[in-house]
Simulated assay, not measured.
Amino acid sequence: MEIEIRQANLNDMTEVSRLFNEYRMFYGQSSDVEGASRFMEERMNNNESIVFIAQCIKDRKERAGAAQAVNEGKYNEAEGQAAGLVQIYPSYSSVSMGPIWILNDLYVDANYRQQGIARKLMQAVMKQAADHGILRITLSTAVSNQQAQALYESEGYAQDQSFMYYECSVKGGML
């Protein structure tokens, strides 16, 4: 099995929504595929996020038919299941006066873990960031998620020692 990393589009919404829903459930949220789909479609339609997916490629012969399937909006069915996703939120650094990316969501389907897919997704993000003049990529993860921390550190990310981060829930806001 070959894995291809590419930027997702609206034709990928079924797989993107499935993975995003699983990601939310990983962090203790209730399943809500419809809500996940609505959220992701809004982000992508409004150019508020960039989503990369890891797509399973079955074999070279089947890839030939994939180009036609893309044009027909059936890319996922032709190529196979999406194994993972990463979602980036573009932002800016006022101090550096330039663009930054916030790597907000990284998830690999449980059936595809321990195969280097998360690393490939992160490397694809880094390449795109370099190609687009992004100054830096920031991310956060649960304190208990040591596996993710090890991956991030092995890819050159360092824990911030300069700033403390705070958050406050907005009264009346949804959590």
Rank of each mutant, 00 (worst) to 15 (best):
M1I: 10
E2D: 05
I3K: 01
E4Y: 10
I5L: 01
R6L: 12
Q7V: 02
A8N: 00
L10A: 00
S17W: 01
R18S: 05
F20R: 04
E22V: 00
Y23R: 02
M25Q: 15
F26K: 05
G28Q: 11
Q29S: 11
G35R: 07
F39A: 13
F39L: 14
M40G: 02
E41R: 12
E42C: 04
E42F: 06
R43G: 15
N46I: 01
S49P: 02
S49Y: 04
V51N: 06
F52Y: 13
F52M: 10
Q55D: 09
Q55E: 12
C56V: 14
C56A: 08
I57Y: 02
D59T: 02
D59S: 12
R60V: 07
G65D: 08
A67L: 14
A67W: 03
A69K: 04
V70N: 01
G73S: 14
K74Y: 01
Y75M: 12
E77A: 08
E77V: 04
A78Q: 04
A83N: 05
L85I: 09
L85K: 00
V86C: 07
V86D: 00
Q87F: 00
Q87I: 07
I88N: 03
P90V: 11
S94E: 03
M97Q: 03
M97R: 03
G98N: 06
W101K: 05
W101Q: 05
L103K: 00
N104W: 01
D105V: 07
L106Q: 00
A110I: 11
R113Y: 04
R113H: 03
K120A: 13
L121V: 10
Q123V: 05
K127I: 03
D131I: 03
I134T: 14
I137T: 12
S140Y: 10
T141K: 05
V143L: 10
S144W: 11
A148H: 07
A148Q: 12
Q149S: 05
S154N: 12
E155V: 05
G156M: 09
Y157E: 05
Y157G: 06
Y157T: 03
Q159A: 11
Q159R: 12
G172M: 08
M174P: 02
L175Q: 15
